[in-house]
């Protein structure tokens, strides 16, 4: 069973629809027991860091998610919340990755909205995805290049657009909105 963590943050319906297009019926839930038993867990997120963390703490998901042993895929804000600390609202995240999330300088257009390329691709999550493929991004905060990086992107500087540690994967871009490339990435996650 594929579970999408529903903690009231943003547009998670499109993640469910993306799996439906792949013929997979993913379950939206905030139930700790259901999430524990899932084969794979998606940790999505669009919205504000602080309100998301408040909701995670209220439901005990802040303790559960870092303890999961099955493959977990964080998306966008989900990826940022899996880090140690984010400049957005200056709050601590789930600390799965010992990384700092920074804010894009306002010398760039912020948020970065649109299609950008991913390079230096690693791991099974990005298998059969060509170097420099285009995927869809919407974000104002970013994870600087680091040793957990499995994809990098240029926007004013090189930064990390996907990361992996043990069973935890995360992408800054939205695979569910990234056309056929995104579908490939979701298929890869299902196959892990």
């Amino acid at each position: 069973m594929i579970v999408i963590v529903d903690y009231g943050a943003g547009n998670i319906q499109s993640v469910k629809f993306a799996f439906e297009r792949l013929g997979v019926d993913a379950v939206l839930t905030s139930d700790v027991e259901v999430i524990k038993k899932a084969d794979k867990v998606i940790f999505p997120g669009v919205g504000r860091a602080e309100s998301a963390m408040v909701k995670l703490k209220a439901t005990g998901l802040d303790k559960l998610i870092p303890a999961l042993k099955q493959p977990v895929l964080g998306v966008c804000l989900g990826m940022q919340l899996m880090c140690k600390h984010t400049a957005e609202d200056n709050i601590n995240g789930l600390d799965i990755f010992p990384l700092e999330v920074k804010e894009f300088p306002k010398t760039l257009k912020v948020p970065q909205i649109g299609w950008n390329q991913i390079s230096e691709l690693k791991t099974d999550l990005l298998k059969d995805v060509k170097e420099d493929s285009f995927v869809y991004f919407v974000h104002s905060f970013y994870v600087p290049d680091n040793s957990f990086s499995i994809a990098s992107t240029n926007y004013g500087m090189k930064y990390s657009s996907a990361i992996k540690k043990d069973n935890f994967y995360a992408t800054q871009f939205h695979p569910e909105k990234s056309g056929s490339i995104g579908e490939q990435i979701l298929k890869n996650f299902l196959a892990i």
Binding site: G10, N11, V46, G47, R48, L77, P111, I113, V138, H139, S140
Partner: peptide, 8 residues
Amino acid sequence: SAAFGAQC
């Protein structure tokens, strides 16, 4: 913007 984020 506060409820859903500036990006939407």
